[in-house]
Design a protein around this nucleic acid. Structure first.
Lengths: 140, 140
DNA sequence: CTGAATCCACCAAGATACTG
DNA sequence: CAGTATCTTGGTGGATTCAG
């Protein structure tokens, strides 16, 4: 049994954790979640404060995102029954713990984004060349 | 100027890194990327080996995912011009560096998933109670 | 075996208007 | 101020077929 077979085997064992990451990413990998969590990192904010901080988010999406975050215990919702009503959102302990891997991802993104963009550029150039000079590679 | 104003101010400064995480998550937060990267962690694999390892992925999605990963320099594609053709995919150095924050996220997911599920359960119970016994909270 | 191409269903998400 | 409700749409992803 060669390396390849060993590797394919090993997939089964690591599949579990892969799926777990996948599920987590499906949860927080949507369009707005990390942005909302991000603005809540340093202090609790009110509904409209979040709305202003997360540029471009619609009311609907903010409400849905916050509700999902509340449901999963990432943020806590506090209602002050005043007039006008006031609702604060703040990260829970669980939410703050999420900031750790998020920061790791942030560090990676900041460090390697240039490399990614460079790779993308190289790929684009390669594609462009292949399209412009097909006679060199596929002399039909 | 109180804490809240300070916090709102600080958002501007941290906005940049938040957006960076957000962009990265939009890139790898899709349905299949992490799963594909996951199975490639330990060894290069051929197209159909990946297909079998990532249960449920369609040909189309695998091709699209691999192409995007190749474009961004996460995986490298090697063609062996044999008959039948053989194509190996393996993580690049950049791809392997991505495994680090991914593992951090994995650790978080494994550690706190129970807490998340528990929170979700509590939320569901709370909703159910509010729906079943509206007379206690909103005596219409 | 490794794709590319086409068609189609579904859903996330935006816009808008309304409410307590 | 803090949401809900409804409508609409662009894009993601699945199924299927064709090709080198």
């Amino acid at each position: 049994m060669n390396d390849r077979h060993m590797a394919v085997r090993r997939i089964d064992r690591s599949q579990e954790s892969c799926v777990t990451v996948h599920e987590t990413l499906e949860r927080i990998g949507d369009k707005w979640t990390v942005l909302v969590v991000g603005v809540l990192e340093h202090a609790p904010l009110r509904y409209n404060e979040i709305r202003r901080a997360v540029v471009g988010i619609s009311q609907r999406m903010l409400t849905l995102t916050l509700k999902a975050l509340e449901r999963d215990g990432i943020v806590e919702r506090t209602v002050y029954p005043t007039i006008p009503p006031r609702v604060d959102y703040e990260l829970t302990e669980l939410g703050r713990s999420l900031m750790v891997p998020l920061r790791a991802l942030s560090d990676w993104a900041i460090k390697y984004r240039p490399a990614m963009l460079a790779a993308r550029q190289r790929y684009a150039d390669k594609q462009r060349l292949a399209a412009e000079q097909p006679r060199f590679t596929s002399p039909k």
